[in-house]
Amino acid sequence: MARSMLVINSSSSSIKYALYHLGRVASCIFQGSVEGIGTSKSSISHKSISTAQDLKIMGKCIRDHEAGLKKVMDLLQQPQNVCTVGHQVVHGNEKFSKPTHITQEVKKAIERAIPLAPLHNPANLEGIQIAEELFHCPHIAVFDTAFHSTIPQLSYMYRIP
C-alpha cells in the first residue's frame, strides 16, 4: 500500500492542497485549489503531476470549507492511503518554532493567536478541524511564524526610537 501525505493551506475563501507520495524520495502526485468558497463563482483546479492532466470545475457553489475538503477528498485517488496531513498555519505566537503534532492544546493556542492573524488563523483552524474528521491519521501544523523564529532577533525586531 502506497503511503501519502496531504498538505493543506486553508485560508478564508480558498483551500490549496498537494498530495505527496512518501517513498524513498517524496514526490508530488496531485496539487490544486478550491477558490471562491461561499460564492457562486467557486472553482476547483486539480492537477495530476504524473499525467499532466488538469481538471477545472467552474461555476459550482462550494458553500463552505467542509464541502471544499470533501471535494478534494473525492478527487484524490485512494484517500485512504493518506497517513499524515500537514497544515500551514499563519500565526503560532511565540510558542511554536517547529512543526508540531496537532492536539487539543495546539488548537487552543491557534485560537488564542486569532487576534494576531484575524484573517488567517480562523480558516486555518477550521481546515484542521474538518480534515481531522475526514482523515483519521496524525495531523501536523507548520507555522509561518516558525520561519521567522530562526533569524537573528535584530532582523525581526522593529526599530522604534
Rank of each mutant, 00 (worst) to 15 (best):
residue 70 K to G: 12
residue 51 T to H: 07
residue 33 S to Y: 06
residue 38 G to W: 03
residue 77 Q to I: 15
residue 8 I to D: 02
residue 82 V to N: 05
residue 29 I to R: 15
residue 29 I to A: 07
residue 73 M to L: 11
residue 60 K to R: 11
residue 55 L to H: 14
residue 41 K to S: 15
residue 68 G to E: 00
residue 71 K to L: 03
residue 47 K to R: 15
residue 12 S to R: 09
residue 20 Y to A: 14
residue 85 V to C: 10
residue 59 G to N: 11
residue 12 S to N: 14
residue 17 Y to L: 01
residue 71 K to C: 08
residue 79 P to S: 06
residue 61 C to I: 01
residue 27 S to I: 08
residue 8 I to L: 14
residue 75 L to F: 11
residue 44 I to R: 06
residue 81 N to E: 13
residue 17 Y to M: 01
residue 75 L to G: 14
residue 32 G to S: 09
residue 58 M to Q: 13
residue 84 T to Y: 05
residue 70 K to M: 15
residue 21 H to K: 13
residue 10 S to L: 03
residue 52 A to C: 05
residue 82 V to L: 07
residue 23 G to D: 02
residue 38 G to M: 10
residue 84 T to E: 01
residue 65 H to V: 01
residue 45 S to Q: 15
residue 60 K to Q: 08
residue 68 G to S: 02
residue 75 L to R: 10
residue 77 Q to P: 13
residue 16 K to A: 10
residue 85 V to D: 06
residue 11 S to F: 06
residue 46 H to F: 11
residue 78 Q to S: 12
residue 13 S to Q: 04
residue 23 G to L: 02
residue 71 K to Y: 02
residue 78 Q to K: 15
residue 14 S to R: 12
residue 80 Q to T: 08
residue 64 D to Q: 06
residue 56 K to S: 07
residue 76 L to S: 13
residue 62 I to K: 07
residue 68 G to K: 01
residue 29 I to K: 09
residue 4 S to F: 00
residue 79 P to Y: 10
residue 59 G to K: 11
residue 8 I to P: 00
residue 21 H to G: 11
residue 84 T to G: 02
residue 18 A to M: 01
residue 15 I to T: 03
residue 58 M to Y: 03
residue 31 Q to I: 01
residue 44 I to L: 12
residue 41 K to Q: 15
residue 26 A to I: 00
residue 46 H to I: 04
residue 25 V to R: 08
residue 13 S to Y: 06
residue 77 Q to L: 13
residue 53 Q to A: 15
residue 26 A to L: 08
residue 5 M to I: 13
